[in-house]
């Protein structure tokens, strides 16, 4: 088991954002957590990364208890985050943004090889290498955020609302990319998404989150065909009714 989360609870002051959720991610899996805005999805990822403290519960990574481990150590342990809205460092160049992802690892990884691979994956980043990241378009910033997370060769990639603010065409491309990273390179990915359909289509398994609690879980295919899910998250029920009439 790569990631094991037990009764995780996260609050901001008196407001409980996550009410004791349980989930697991196996090595090599692509798992998504879907749910509406404000369901606590981003809080869970930030809790896994160590950016917000867990009020209760435990997080185990590779069998090791990491609930109290600070974020930068989790990053060095192989957990990497693609944050909501990319959050690239705006006044660092594209290249410098990539280097932050390899901070403290330059001697441990083949930096040049990783850079070559990433530039092949995202040619635009090589083209814009020396530009400040804030001059990139939203889609380009998302690519940079993914590349920045991948440069360290992570064991678990956390992806937060990658589709938010992207054109539909770009959303498809990004999801294709995540799927191929998982399928071809065996990268373990935990995806948190409002765009339920796109994420369920590429996931092995999924959890449905409602106001801070997991209300349903299962293989992504089953959830895609579940009438409740279709109605609540996929917006399909109405289309089908319209067809029938």
């Amino acid at each position: 088991m790569l990631l094991e989360v037990n009764r995780l609870e996260i609050s901001y002051g008196d407001v409980r954002a996550v009410h004791g959720v349980d989930f697991v991610v196996e090595e090599g899996e692509l798992v998504s957590i879907i749910g509406a805005n404000g369901a606590g999805k981003t809080s869970i990822l930030n809790g896994l990364m160590g950016l917000v403290p867990a009020r209760r519960g435990s997080i185990r990574f590779h069998g090791q208890e990491i609930t109290a481990v600070p974020a930068h150590k989790r990053a060095h342990g192989g957990i990497r985050l693609v944050p909501e809205r990319a959050r690239v460092f705006p006044r660092l160049s594209v290249f410098e943004n990539l280097l932050t992802g390899a901070y403290g690892l330059r001697k441990k990884i083949d930096l040049d090889g990783r850079l070559r691979w990433l530039y092949e994956l995202f040619p635009i980043l090589e083209e814009r290498r020396d530009q400040p990241a804030q001059t990139l378009s939203g889609g380009e910033q998302q690519q940079l955020a993914i590349a920045r997370a991948l440069i360290s060769d992570p064991r678990l990639l956390l992806v937060d609302e990658i589709s938010m603010g992207l054109m539909p065409k770009l959303v498809d491309q990004v999801f294709d990319l995540l799927q191929s990273l998982n399928r071809d390179l065996g990268l373990t990915i935990l995806l948190v998404e409002q765009n339920a359909r796109a994420s369920l289509e590429i996931s092995h398994r999924a959890y449905v989150l409602e106001t801070g609690s997991v209300v349903m879980e299962g293989p992504a295919k089953d959830l895609l065909n579940n009438p409740d899910i279709r109605k609540a998250y996929l917006g399909l029920a109405r289309e089908e009714e319209a067809k029938r009439q």
Binding site: F89, L92, L99, Y103
Partner: peptide, 24 residues
């Protein structure tokens, strides 16, 4: 220097710098 890069990263987004493995 790499330390300087970390200083600039922390000044622009402290939490994300932590997520990049920087002890901010």
């Amino acid at each position: 220097t790499e330390t300087g890069l970390a200083m600039r990263a922390v000044s622009q987004d402290l939490a994300i710098a932590d997520a990049m493995g920087i002890n901010s």
